[in-house]
């Protein structure tokens, strides 16, 4: 298929500026059975994240006597995209995303406090429109804070990169498909640690550095959506 024009009259196809996020809304505590949970809408993405545990390790031989182990499932609903019905079950893409997401949280959860246990993180993409792994991590960060499992920080994530010679943040699906460079990144803001970084495309070092500045500038909005979701829980009427 021919590459569509992604920029018109200095704006992106959905009318956004290059440094403008899609609307982001997060609600904590939506899945009653879970230890912690969050529902996130970011543009057209709709994501549920839930945390269970710490709990008994199954199968038992995976248990680590020094610390808790983390399991992570990232999965897309078969009805989540605007295209054809998706095949059910894990695929290579979902397996990789599950792995790198797990590694983000292994860094932040105080695993040493719960030896010989397991913590499960589930991320279900109910509707997808680009940047779902970032949306999943941003939601799972809130779910973990909601759970009471001790964590060093709440991570946020966002994906963006380069369209033509322009840098842009928070790619939607079509930008994701046809961009010249695509960089999902997850950061622990208080500790200033990069916990997930992936990239494909073409970018100079200088562009990458400017991209990181852009991430830092928009991060405040993502972090504040996460905070609002958590604080909302403690508002009492009457």
């Amino acid at each position: 298929m021919q590459k569509p024009e992604l920029i018109k009259d200095g704006k992106r196809l959905d009318g956004r500026d290059f440094e403008e996020l899609r609307p982001l809304k997060i609600v904590a505590g939506i899945i009653k059975n879970a230890t912690g949970s969050a529902y996130l809408e970011w543009g057209n993405n709709k994501v549920l994240a839930a945390v269970y545990g710490p709990k008994e390790v199954l199968p038992k031989h995976l248990a680590d006597p020094e610390k808790a182990i983390v399991k992570c499932r990232y999965a897309m609903a078969p009805f989540s995209s605007l295209e054809e019905h998706g095949r059910a079950g894990p695929n290579r893409r979902a397996t990789e995303i599950s792995k790198v997401t797990k590694e983000v949280f292994e860094n932040l959860i105080m695993l040493e406090k719960f030896p010989s246990t397991e913590i499960d993180i589930f991320i279900e993409i109910l509707q997808s429109d680009g940047g779902t792994r970032s949306a999943g991590i941003t939601a799972a960060g809130v779910a973990l804070a909601d759970s009471g499992i001790p964590i060093r920080d709440i991570p946020f994530a966002v994906a963006g990169g380069k369209i033509g010679d322009k840098l842009a943040i928070d790619f939607n699906k079509i930008e994701d498909n046809y961009s010249d460079a695509d960089i999902p990144i997850a950061i622990s803001p208080n500790l200033d640690r990069v916990l997930l970084l992936q990239m494909d495309g073409k970018m100079t070092k200088e562009e990458f550095s400017r991209y990181l500045d852009m991430v830092e500038r928009v991060s405040k909005q993502i972090i504040s959506a996460q905070k609002n979701a958590l604080l909302e829980k403690y508002k009492v009427n009457g």
Partner: peptide, 26 residues
Amino acid sequence: LPGSKITSGIIKADGTYIENDSTYAS
């Protein structure tokens, strides 16, 4: 919230951790 600095200096309490002589919430 988790990750926020509670105060400079050290407070010992459940749900906190110490980093660079400051206390953070976990």
